[in-house]
Amino acid sequence: MNGDFLALLPKPAVPQFGANAPTTQPLHATTVFAFHCAAGVIIAGDHRATAGNIVFSDKTEKILELDSHSLMAIAGSPATAFEMGRTLQTSFEFYRRSQLQSMSLPAKIRALSQLLRNNLAGTIQGFGVVAPIFAGVEPNDPSAKPQIYFYDPLGAQFEATNYAGSGSGSGSIKSVLSFLERWGQPKPAEMSLEQAVVLANRLLMTAAEFDTATGGVHPEVREFATIKLVSPPGIRSISTAEQEQFWKEASK
């Protein structure tokens, strides 16, 4: 028994697309990003899912908690991405319970990479492409630093020293974050939690100006981004009430 949950499944957990893959308009979900702040790592996403020029949903949750110390932000095909998230959630908990210890952070990062590589057929056909962001912190280590990784759709993993973004609106966001890293006062990495949360919402609103596939963030009607903080104690969701409070204070 080696704690490998995938070995228990009779078929690949993530759907494989064959030569006769359907040709309907695929569903996509954007935009997600993560950056370091003084409190840890902020990871955020909008709520819009689109199929071509159709807004499929403005209530989509794209930040998936994999366990108490790691999460994944999805961009790309939701069908494949959600299944990857569910597979990782079960795999990490299965490992922790069966082996009586948590999976290490490098192993979790690698596990997502392996799922992406196993999705090669869907990626090549362009139907099941997923380009996620992973954020996590080593469990049971109060001095551990949270880390951000981004992936290419074939499974290559890259550590983001400052920030990472994925999805169709991420170009705008990365541009702004790059600017702030160089000339910001304070820089994102120096921001308090309150400042970082406000910044995350503003970034998504900025991205929505240029990308129709980014949306669902409207502070004026209490619609905020999905935002989570990764820090040594674990993951903390920033509630709508907290975001509203931070937003109002920043607007004074």
Partner: peptide, 13 residues
């Protein structure tokens, strides 16, 4: 214990 954990996780998944 392993049998219980495996059965529970496969069912839950």
């Amino acid at each position: 214990r392993q049998a219980a954990i495996e059965a529970a996780h496969v069912e839950g998944f």
